[in-house]
Amino acid sequence: MDDYRLRELLEVVEHNPKIPPEELAVMLGMSVEEVIQNIDRLEEQGVIRNYKTVIDWDAVGEEYVYAIIELKVALEDRSGYDTIAKRIAGFPEVRSVHLVSGDHDLSITVRGKSMKDVAFFVAEKIAPLKQIQGTVTHFVLKAYKEDGLILFGDEKPKRLPITP
């Protein structure tokens, strides 16, 4: 399959992973077999890494606290950023880990049940790591957009129902 169509398949699946292959085939002008084979292959190759569901936990009363934490890292002999980054990434409380440019080195996101929860986690699990020179914790007060998804539901102006 050509690159253009493959890309389009990925674009559609990225936003709507639940569309059945029969429907994808019609949407993209492919055969059902082509769709299934390509998706299988893309999954195997790790191009499609995961299918994710975005849940508004607040809506069911499960409140979480998020914090973005800047970490200053002192590299030890022979081990690079990867070693410490992987170590931190292992904690389930840690939602994302990025090596970044600027005046700190790693930027991580942590989720906990309360501010205390998050603060203890940082104090007990992250700060004591010997490569960590310092941490700055920013608690998230409100999320407006995440992973390309706008989270505020402004009312969309309505179109006229019939226009030429």
């Binding site: 179109r159 006229l160 129902p161 019939i162 226009t163 030429p164």
Partner: peptide, 24 residues
């Protein structure tokens, strides 16, 4: 009068409709 305009009056103000009549 525009044939579309006439039809428009039938549809206007109804929320239960799926409109395939929109030219934008």
């Amino acid at each position: 009068p525009s044939g579309i305009r006439e039809f428009f009056d039938l549809v206007m103000g109804r929320d239960d409709i799926i409109s395939l009549g929109v030219g934008e």
